[in-house]
Design a protein around this nucleic acid. Structure first.
Lengths: 173, 173, 173, 173
DNA sequence: GATGAATGAGTTTTCATTCAT
DNA sequence: AATGAATGAAAACTCATTCAT
């Protein structure tokens, strides 16, 4: 990726996350990135291609996040780490996650693949802890994580520490 | 509201929910509603006005949902009812909620007012049950509800019963 | 067709014929027709649709031209009339024919249907005159007609009368 | 001409002939030729220059075709040879002729120079055969040739042999 | 000679909105 | 109230051409 390509991707990510994919014109992106509009199409074929480039670039970082979970053995530690995921989204990753969550609501874009690796780690953890329905417990955590992500990304929850504690308590962590 | 007005509102709601507000053109709405494009603007002034009409029509039904909570006295019952809210979204209301959740991610539209009445009922309930941090507990529930809404509206969760049970257990309900 | 629609069609026909379909922008057409560019797309869906509208409008007039041939009985008269067709293209029809001939050379547009009704009249005529290979004679006439059309539409052949006579002589007309 | 230059010219010729000059972008040409887009401009200055290169390269081969006619003395043989010209277009020359004929219809490109050497040979031939209007006869042949070229280049005439015979008969050849 | 990134002007197309009827 | 023709501005995308390397 050339410097300008990266500039396009990062500008687009910021704008798509802030104003939505559909409401952000390619000309806004070009202006923000300080390049000609044509360059976007030369590098990414079309607006959709630009979105895909953003998405797959993000996926890599996400996979990296998840991979660190695989080495953890203690089931309680696994669950704690997963619950803490939304709280540990770094400032420069927020735009990516905002975009991803916003896109969920757009028909035909919904993509659940991200939850699969989490489930693969969670279910065994609940099994080890002898929960009666490990699959349902894993689903519940995923649901909780979605809620936490909304809170972290859209609101700036004041009592974030207290909330985290309250949730961890429910799982005796 | 005349019959045609209602047709416009319901068609717009369906389309906005499915494809997003920004990606739905007024001409698509007109076609779906079987009316002329001009009529939308005669009745709702502009696209934004149409959205507002949809939103305030929905708000009425939402207020109604909440009002039934006020009469409940038993704190455990209050909490249970609130957790069950997302599961009780009726099929014909789903489009409205999808639209509302999708709009959350659109900059400058985020609106937290809906959570206020819930908090006003939840905090006293947790106080009565002697939870150590009732405000944080209330926040946690709101977060959970957002997660549940995503699940109910976007996925077709098979084990929805088991999930609900797992969550209620956390609150000893 | 409204007045503006017809204005668009006639302007487009003139420009497409003069400068070629691909080299004529819709904005040129709009300017020439004195309408907004958007109107072209509202009425004809896209540039291709505008072309089709021009073509099918032209086809009607052409069919009319051909229908008058069907009532002729004398085979010699049939042949003479057909040979004279290119010479009888009226000034206001020239643009249509220029466009049609130009499009022939564009891959995937070539369309031979126009020659079918001519063949259906020509072959029987040559049969009646006891030509040894009526089908080949009909084809030869069609070929000649294409050549004549090129001459009439692109050049202003000086000795047009003499040329016509020379050709008719070949068929003893 | 370097190898790459020739690759550009031959690719451009094929594409211009198949899809038209205006509808063929320089980037398509570059891709087809397997060279960078910039190279086209380094070698041919601009798109128009590329076209001219194709055209003048073709002209050479055409002149060669005509030159062989000059040595023929028998007037009947001259006429026969000229009528046979369109049938003798070799497969690898068809693209060039298609391009040339397509360009005729593009305003301000029409170029009649090619017909001049033919006329210079044909008129004397008809004079020798005592035709009453040799100039008109020559024109008729040119017109016929245009028609034959359309047939040979655009259609795949099955009965081409029969057609050729039918035409030669008209000139008692 | 050759590449490919980059541009700017233009092209096709969409869309919210207005207006005469 | 209702239509549908019409618009102007902006959107997505294309393309011939330039230029640094």
């Amino acid at each position: 990726m050339t410097e300008k390509q990266e500039k396009i991707v990062s500008s687009a990510l910021r704008l798509f996350a802030e104003q939505g994919y559909a409401s952000t014109s390619t000309s806004k992106v070009a202006k923000e990135a300080g390049v000609s509009e044509g360059l976007i199409f030369r590098h990414f074929k079309n607006k959709e291609g630009l979105l895909q480039a953003i998405l797959s670039q993000g996926q890599e970082k996400v996979s990296h996040m998840f991979r660190s979970l695989e080495s953890v053995n203690d089931p309680k530690e696994v669950i704690r780490r997963i619950i803490e995921l939304p709280f540990s989204i770094e400032e420069d990753q927020k735009a990516f996650w905002k975009l991803l969550y916003a896109l969920k609501w757009q028909a035909n874009v919904y993509d659940d693949t991200m939850s699969i690796p989490i489930k693969q780690v969670l279910v065994p953890a609940f099994e080890k802890l002898n929960y009666s329905n490990p699959a349902a417990e894993a689903e519940s955590i995923l649901i909780l994580i979605d809620g936490l992500a909304v809170a972290v990304l859209l609101r700036k929850p004041e009592q974030i520490g207290a909330i985290k504690q309250s949730i961890l308590n429910k799982y005796h962590l």
